[in-house]
Computed example of a mutant assay.
Amino acid sequence: MTISLDEIDRRILAELMRDARQPNTQLANAVGLSPPPCWQRVRRLEKAGIVRGYSARLDMAALGSPETALIEVSLGDHKNYPLEAVCESIAAIPEVLEVHITTGEFDCFVKVAVASNRDLEEFLREKLYKIEGIRSSRSSLSLRCFKSEQSVLP
């Protein structure tokens, strides 16, 4: 279902991106509506699939995984090891935050949360490299993240 977004819809989306836990009354006030039409608009945005859900952002360092590894992965043979199946296997690993099929030299991009360099090595040897079809990878550790968003308003 495709819907046309007006300025109020965009303000609602911006507010929800800023703080999805705010009460409807606060959201309505922020966007210049009374609570009932604001609630109806939010429900319409959810039903249209524009708002796909709500989640908490976790501090990975506080949870014991302060390092972020960025890994580019190449497959050896696309006929015997379909890219989607390999990516689904990678995505099933708990440390994996994101998996993207990509263009260019590598077939997919993987973002992983680990506790240390040693844990990254263990992830690569004991988990990633045991997935059939993976030919090679190139890893980088993120030194510092300046922006981390799940979505943007076009």
Rank of each mutant, 00 (worst) to 15 (best):
L63W: 15
G32H: 03
S89T: 08
P154D: 10
D19I: 01
D119Y: 06
C145E: 14
C38A: 15
V112K: 02
E122H: 13
D6Q: 05
L13I: 09
L124I: 14
V112I: 06
N24A: 15
S139N: 04
S74M: 12
A48N: 05
E98I: 12
Q150T: 14
A62R: 11
E126K: 14
C145A: 12
P154T: 11
M17D: 01
I8C: 07
I131Y: 04
V152R: 13
R135T: 01
S142W: 01
L5I: 06
E126S: 14
L97M: 14
G32K: 00
E122S: 15
S136K: 09
I134W: 03
S89M: 08
W39P: 07
E105M: 11
Q40N: 11
I12G: 00
P36C: 04
L5R: 01
Q26R: 15
A115M: 03
H78L: 15
I3K: 02
L27T: 07
A62C: 08
V42L: 06
L63Y: 12
E105Q: 15
E84W: 10
S4L: 14
N117P: 10
G49A: 01
L63P: 01
H78V: 09
M17I: 10
R118P: 00
D59K: 13
T103S: 14
V152P: 00
V73I: 05
E46P: 09
D19T: 00
P37C: 03
E121F: 10
S116N: 02
R43T: 12
I93R: 04
F109R: 12
N29R: 12
E121R: 15
S65H: 15
P35E: 14
D77I: 04
T2C: 08
A69W: 10
D6G: 07
G133F: 05
Y54N: 05
C38N: 09
I71F: 03
A62G: 14
A56K: 13
L63H: 09
S89G: 09
S34T: 14
V31E: 02
D59R: 11
V86M: 03
P154R: 13
S4I: 15
E72I: 05
K147F: 11
F106K: 15
L27Q: 02
T102M: 09
R52T: 15
R125W: 14
S74V: 08
R10W: 01
R144D: 09
A115T: 06
S74F: 05
D9F: 00
R41Y: 08
A56H: 12
C38I: 04
R144I: 10
Q22F: 04
R44W: 02
S148W: 10
A61E: 11
L16K: 08
I90N: 07
E105W: 07
I101D: 08
A56C: 09
E95Y: 02
K111S: 10
F146A: 11
D6L: 02
I12F: 06
I50Y: 02
E88F: 07
S116Q: 02
E7A: 10
T103Q: 13
S148K: 08
N29W: 11
A61I: 09
V86H: 03
L45S: 08
T2R: 14
G32L: 04
I71C: 02
V152D: 10
